[in-house]
Write a protein that binds this DNA or RNA. Structure first.
Lengths: 217, 217
DNA sequence: TAATGTTTAAAACATCTGTTTTAACCACTA
DNA sequence: TAGTGGTTAAAACAGATGTTTTAAACATTA
């Protein structure tokens, strides 16, 4: 057995199990037994369960961010980018990167879990390691939507993010329903195609007037 | 101490802790000690931890569904409902019901957790107990958006749901950022006002052509 | 071949989990 | 007042969890 075959097998198995059942609900014993690896191997190779979780994310996000950064650099150099182009670039990069291993839906589900579960220690990790790329994307988005107040854009980014993460998180269940009820075999690619126009117009929706501070319940 | 004061205190504490740390990450010992209640009280009054989780949801959702059902009945009787009216009714009902106790953001976060965490046992519970009201809402939504293919509407509903659940789930963190970066003290009411136009136009976005099945990667 | 550093194996450790049990407590009725 | 039903208290139970330890196996280099 190659030296780091154990590491790969742990990562693959952990990734699948985390996505399926969540972080806290997945024990190291389940991971190691399913990966046909000794229990202590996780602590030996990764140090702790927490570090294993982060390693699972890094294996996805590191190549994604590298790719996305070069794409963003090209857009920055060119200039005059439209909202459609920017979002399409994001979607295309997302689709292109993780095609090799576990599907995109698995990772999206992990992302959703990281945000809601694990009392924010994962959130902090994501912010520290990938916040710079996100800021770069935000900057481009601001150039595409110059009429939007900053606060409004901020909230809409998270509306978008919520749509993506939530739908992808529940993808398996939703796909089953879509197949049963509408005979549609939805592929990830289809879902992204469905999301693009929705997100694009959502970002450009009219800016509402906020209710007055006085009239509180 | 009133007879069921213990029950209320368990529910209040569990609700807050679940929302803060998730279901699996919150132990009965943490709940009962914080609620100043004996450990065995949870199993005595609710039967199990799982049943306690469901009770937390029922305390929110039962009054909400009752209210929302009467609102929907009024709309059905009247007829000719617009998309804006339907969504506004949903938003207004959501805002009006849980104002008495723990804030809406707490419940929204619970809802998000229920969908992603707990490997679907909560999802099944929600479907069984509140699926009928949801179907009724879906029916009205279909009348409001007659040009939308059923499958497209199905996915967009979940895009919307994702926006709401995800944003509300992360509300505390996002609100802090919004306050620091944009000096905006976002209230739930403001957030709902921000969401309404976005969701409305998102539902009415142009229907995309899906990529051909042949051109797979 | 001998020695060295890395990886795996199996067991034990300490702690935490949800749940159950047993006894005490308390309010209320007969 | 005696007793009954509902509630609380404290302890124990059985099992699962992340982590650590000790020894064996392995590959690689001197």
């Amino acid at each position: 057995m190659a030296q780091s075959d154990t590491v790969t097998r742990i990562l693959d198995t952990a990734e699948a199990l985390f996505a399926e059942k969540g972080f806290a609900e997945t024990s190291l014993r389940t991971i190691t037994s399913k990966a046909k690896v000794n229990l202590a191997a996780v602590n030996y190779h990764f140090g702790s369960k927490k570090a294993l979780i982060q390693a699972v994310f890094a294996r996805y996000l590191d190549p994604f961010c590298e790719q996305f950064n070069t794409e963003l650099a090209a857009l920055e150099k060119r200039g005059g980018v439209t909202l459609e182009e920017l979002l399409e670039t994001l979607a295309r990069t997302t689709l292109s990167v993780p095609a090799s291993k576990g599907s995109l839906s698995v990772f999206m589900r992990l992302l959703g879990l990281a945000y809601t579960q694990a009392q924010g220690h994962m959130r902090r990790y994501l912010q520290e390691h990938y916040g710079q790329t996100f800021a770069r994307f935000s900057q481009q988005l601001k150039l595409c939507t110059p009429d939007l107040p900053d606060a409004e854009r901020f909230w809409r980014i998270h509306f978008m993010l919520g749509s993506v993460v939530f739908t992808m998180s529940s993808l398996d269940a939703l796909r089953d329903i879509a197949y049963n009820d509408y005979a549609e075999k939805t592929r990830i690619k289809d879902l992204v195609a469905r999301m693009l126009p929705v997100v694009t117009v959502a970002m450009q929706a009219p800016v509402p007037e906020l209710p007055l501070p006085s009239e509180s319940a």
